[in-house]
Amino acid sequence: MWQFFHKLGSPKWFYGIANRFMPWFLWGGLILLGAGLVWGLAFAPKDYLQGNSYRIIFIHVPAAFLAQSVYLMMASAALVTLVWRMKLADVFVKAIAPVGLILTFLSLFTGAVWGKPTWGTWWVWDARLTSMLILLFLYGGVIALDKAINDEKSAARAVAVLVLVGVVNIPIIKYSVDWWNTLHQPATFKLTEKPSMPMEMWVPLLLSVLGLYLLFGWLACIRMKTEILTRERRTRWVRELVLAGRK
């Protein structure tokens, strides 16, 4: 168990594992996301109430879902950074914060464009939308704080604390649609209940969520590899790796 834990913390070990998984993440993700989006755009039936504008959910829901789950992953890594000082956890946080930022932006943007024909407005200051905007600022704050501190270890600790404080926002996003009267509809995706939408809509949505998850896995791997290379460029294993001409 401890040996496994130490291995997991070793950047060199991670580098090898990432190389093995990345093609699966990339191609699996592209195929699943592509299938989900084409199905959702062209083949899924029209929504009887919202018309065709509902087709935006095939990107809005995956982006919003990932934006929150990326934050939770980041928070778990931040906890590991603080408790065990594991280098790899900090590398993970730094590598995925920009990905989370873009996913959050995409979910806000697609939500706004969907809101115009459906609600008649681009934006309302209701609980769900506002808490999602706060998530965007949290991601931005994490990136800015990391850039502002030069010392690697202090930056890691400060960023981890900020990430953990921001976790309080996640349940607020999740339950905002139940706690307050919001314009936003309740959760589309529930793991515990049967889907409330017909199968022809639900399956493509599931495909695009899974596809985006895999692409996120690929992004996390390649960005972590870059960060590891930058940090460990003076070590022997990086030297050997580079000289061997492998990626």
Binding site: L41, G51, N52, I56, A63, W114
Partner: peptide, 20 residues
């Protein structure tokens, strides 16, 4: 055209694909 919703739907998909 998507019955008038075309611009909204296609804008979203374009922005999503470009950013990703």
């Amino acid at each position: 055209a998507m019955e008038g919703h075309g611009p909204y739907v296609w804008t979203c998909y374009a922005v999503f694909v470009i950013f990703l």
